[in-house]
Design a binder for these strands. Sequence first.
DNA 1: GGAAGCATGTAAAGTGTTACATGATTTT
DNA 2: AAAATCATGTAACACTTTACATGCTTCC
Lengths: 179, 179
Amino acid sequence: MKLTPSGFLMLGMVRLGVRSGYGIKKISDVSTRFFWPTSLAQVYPELARLVQAGLLIRREDPQGARERFAYELTERGEQAMDAWLRSSREAPTQFRHEGVLRLFFADALAEEDQLALVRRLRERVSDVATHTREEILPLAEALESSGTRFPALVARLRADTYAYVERWLEQAEAELEQT
Amino acid sequence: MKLTPSGFLMLGMVRLGVRSGYGIKKISDVSTRFFWPTSLAQVYPELARLVQAGLLIRREDPQGARERFAYELTERGEQAMDAWLRSSREAPTQFRHEGVLRLFFADALAEEDQLALVRRLRERVSDVATHTREEILPLAEALESSGTRFPALVARLRADTYAYVERWLEQAEAELEQT
DNA sequence: GGAAGCATGTAAAGTGTTACATGATTTT
DNA sequence: AAAATCATGTAACACTTTACATGCTTCC
């Protein structure tokens, strides 16, 4: 059975102590979503496949009358996760950004519209930087203080990169204004 | 009829003077691919839709016995393109990167393996930076000298951003080594 | 009492890639 | 002569998202 990165995401989340499918989706929305999105409609079938493959075990774990299932890594699950972390094979990187596509074709616009386009793009980038710094990073830093530090490293990488792009676009804006 | 960004990509390429569907795919592979990928199986049906919507006209343009079709923007095509360039509605940004996902879960690894993982990631990022600087940017700069400057701006943004991430990871590596 | 959140899952629709299928022209 | 490139298109497959469907619990 061949695992996808989404499968390893779930294995990894379970290893970090996230118990339910719902929980995995919720945590992933404030952490891994930005470099590996998932949806609930993906989480549940994938967890079932991982159980069937013997990488996870699923226990009933109801909260009162509300059903819930708790997942745990098996020995083979641990091994699969370790092997993945040490391997260098990677799915091709995917990036789709309509704003950058617009920028690519911006020559057709009048100069003032070109400037407006760059400014809008910069504002969006700025929002992402702020959101990452203020909403995502603090959560990762909470984890960091209990010994799990890579989520915070990744959040900082994202925050710093977006801040860099923001400054870059600011300068591009200034240069466009001079013309 | 609702156009997707892929549709505007094709409109934009035709406006830049790319004539055939094959040509659009080829040019996009060394330019827009990095922020909006397409495949031939997308290009041909989409061009047909754009013709049907009255945004493009298609003329026969054979090379000897080899069939070829040349596309041109209609007045309505020009207008649709301009409206898109000036609009601020955007499809949600998509980013998927298995290497960053690995980094997120790297706490489970021994320190030497963590370091190896960061190093591998940095090397990949470095390759992208180099490729963008040496292969993609020169093509965009050729366009720039004939007056179309935004493709070069986008290529520089990409090259500089990846160079920044490369330096960032270098420093993270150094900090990991100290521990 | 109602809204928001917790929790699990399926079905349908949409999007996209790979493989298939064909054939001409140019380069090595 | 073979390989690479130019050129168009379809079919099958894989993957993802959105909508559907249901019900409990907690907070206001």
